[in-house]
Simulated scan of single mutants.
Amino acid sequence: MPDRPEIVCICGSTRFGDEMSAANRDLTFAGVIVVAPGVFLRAEDHEADELITNEQKATLGALHLRKIDLADRVLVVNPGGYIGESTSREIAYAHATGKPISFTDPV
């Protein structure tokens, strides 16, 4: 048995909050430590731009990269194969740091 449980960082568009929550639940029940986005703003929220500043977006993006640093591997939640700009950046970062990456749907 390892000294600690595996740590998985969930990445993906925050529009898939329900799917990320389900992945988080399934991984947690499997004994995995999960780190994931902490703020979910959907694209269809017309007031989303009023809820979060560009500075906050940048801070959250940098924070998520640190979560990737903590993880043993990355799980990309990508229903229908969708990968947006932020998730692409996170995948590139994970790849550059040697983290194994898996996807919930084919890319």
Rank of each mutant, 00 (worst) to 15 (best):
E44L: 00
G38K: 15
R73E: 08
E47I: 06
D49V: 02
Q56K: 14
R73K: 13
V107N: 06
A23L: 11
G17Y: 03
L70Q: 10
G84K: 01
A36N: 13
L41S: 02
R66M: 05
P100S: 12
E6K: 02
G84V: 02
Y93P: 04
D26C: 03
I10A: 02
L41I: 09
D49H: 01
P5R: 02
I7Q: 01
F40I: 09
L75Q: 01
E6I: 02
I83Q: 05
S21N: 10
N78G: 09
P5M: 04
K67T: 08
T87S: 13
G80Q: 08
G31F: 11
R25C: 07
I33M: 07
D45L: 07
V77M: 09
E85M: 08
V77Q: 05
A71P: 01
R4S: 11
M1R: 00
D69F: 01
G31Q: 10
P5A: 07
E47H: 08
K99W: 10
D69Y: 03
N54L: 15
I91V: 13
M20H: 02
C11F: 01
P2V: 01
I91M: 09
E90V: 07
V32L: 08
K67S: 09
I33Q: 06
N24C: 14
V8N: 02
E19C: 06
V74M: 13
V39E: 14
H46Y: 06
Y82I: 08
D45N: 10
E55G: 14
S86K: 03
A94Q: 00
P2N: 04
A30W: 04
A23N: 01
A43N: 03
R15H: 02
E44I: 03
A48H: 08
A48V: 01
V32N: 02
I33H: 12
T97F: 09
L27I: 10
L75R: 05
A92Q: 13
E55A: 15
F29C: 07
L70D: 08
F29V: 12
G80K: 09
